[in-house]
Structures are given as structure tokens and as C-alpha cells.
Computed example of a mutant assay.
Amino acid sequence: MDRAALFDVDGTLVDTNHLHVVTWWEAFRQAGHRVPMHAVHRSVGLGSADLIAHLLGDDRDKDEDDALAAAHSALYGQYFDRLPAFADAGRLLRRLHGDGWTVVLATSASGPELGALRRAIDADDAIAGIASADDVSAGKPAPEPVEHALELAGAPAGDAVFVGDTVWDMRAGRRAGVRCVGVLSGGIPRADLQEAGADTVYDDPAHLLASLADSPLA
């Protein structure tokens, strides 16, 4: 049975969280909503519909949701040709692949955005599959993205590790029954990741790669 190394993408492998913060903030501003950037930052990692609901509440004008999501996509899309992967992100995936792990991405991205992220990571040769927003009915913190990633990997939860940068990642992984590893590269505090379910926390992909022998991915 394969061992599965499951990875979130934004904030975990690619340095995009603050781009999402600014472009979501601008999308809200254009629609007349004042949403603090710190609140947007804490919501990054949710799918678009869930992020809007989380920040604007259930009493919002839901007819506006699609326009807000489209505005964010258009603003964020301006950066697709220069999304920066974190140092050693691709090397980490290739090392795990070489060590016998089945590497699968579990992300709320899809379509052209997902393509831009994959180009930034530049490690398709090490990636066995991708569980994207198009593949599940509920995004993180629901367990479905991680469960679908497990299906793609052909591995049971007990033989899998999920690496992510947000509390939504950690909660999704815990609900799916996998071990969770947090990284600080998305800007969420260590204590928050641990409280949400991280077994251990590293600074970023380079730190995890350097510490691999003593990590849950050993």
C-alpha cells in the first residue's frame, strides 16, 4: 500500500496568500464592503463561496457572491505569470516521490489558477494527482478535499500525511483522519496551527526538506 504525502498549495508550496489578501480586499472594496485585511488573511484557504460567507455573514446579499468571486479572480489573475514558489518546494516534492511517497495536491484552486500554481512549483513529474475545487462539493475545512486526495493516492488515512498552512487545512486533515503538518509560510501563527490539529510545524518547505529525516514524512 502506498504512503501518501498530501499538500495544500497556496501558502504551503507557493507564496500567494498575501496576493489573495490584497485582491480579495480590493474585490470587496469595489463592491462597497469594508473588510479588514487581517480578517481576509485569516480566511484565506477557504473556497471562494465559503470565504465570502465567512467574511460577510449569512445576512449578506447572496446575489452578489458570483460577482465578488469573479472580481477576485480577475484581480488575482494578473499575477498568474509570476506566482513565486517557496524555496525548495519542488525539491521537497521530488524528494518525497523519490523516497516512495505518492504525492497528491489538495487545493481550492482550479482551472487557469491551478495551472499557474503548477507552473510555479514546476514539479509535475513528482505529482501523482490533484484534488481540486472542481472535484468536491465542499471545500476545507470539510474533509472531502483530503479524502479525495487519499482516493487519488490509493492510500488509507493511516498511511498519509497532509501538509498545509492554515487552520482550515489542519481541520480538514484531522476530520479525514490523517496526520497533519503545518508550515508557517502562510502567515498563520504556530499556536493556531497546533490548536487546529498540526502534529508538528515547520517554517516553510525548505525547513521541512532539511528536517525530513525527523519528520512525519521520514
Rank of each mutant, 00 (worst) to 15 (best):
L55D: 06
L56V: 02
D59C: 05
R60M: 03
R60N: 06
K62P: 03
K62R: 14
E64S: 04
E64G: 01
E64H: 04
D65V: 04
D65G: 01
A67P: 12
A67Q: 14
A70W: 00
A70P: 00
A70R: 06
A71Q: 13
H72Q: 09
S73I: 05
S73E: 15
A74E: 14
Y76F: 15
G77V: 08
Q78W: 11
Y79K: 03
Y79M: 09
P84Q: 13
A85G: 11
F86G: 00
D88I: 00
G90D: 06
L92P: 08
L92I: 11
L93P: 12
R94N: 08
R94F: 13
G98I: 06
G98V: 04
G100C: 12
V103E: 11
V103R: 12
L105E: 08
A106E: 09
A106Y: 11
P112D: 10
G115S: 13
L117V: 01
R119T: 15
A123E: 05
D125L: 08
I127G: 07
A128D: 10
I130A: 07
A131T: 03
A131F: 06
S132Q: 05
D135N: 02
S137W: 08
P141N: 08
A142W: 09
P143K: 09
E147K: 15
E147N: 12
H148T: 07
A149S: 06
G154H: 01
G154W: 00
G154D: 07
A155V: 07
P156I: 00
V161M: 09
F162Y: 15
G164N: 03
M170A: 00
M170W: 11
M170Y: 13
R175D: 11
R175W: 02
G177R: 10
G182H: 08
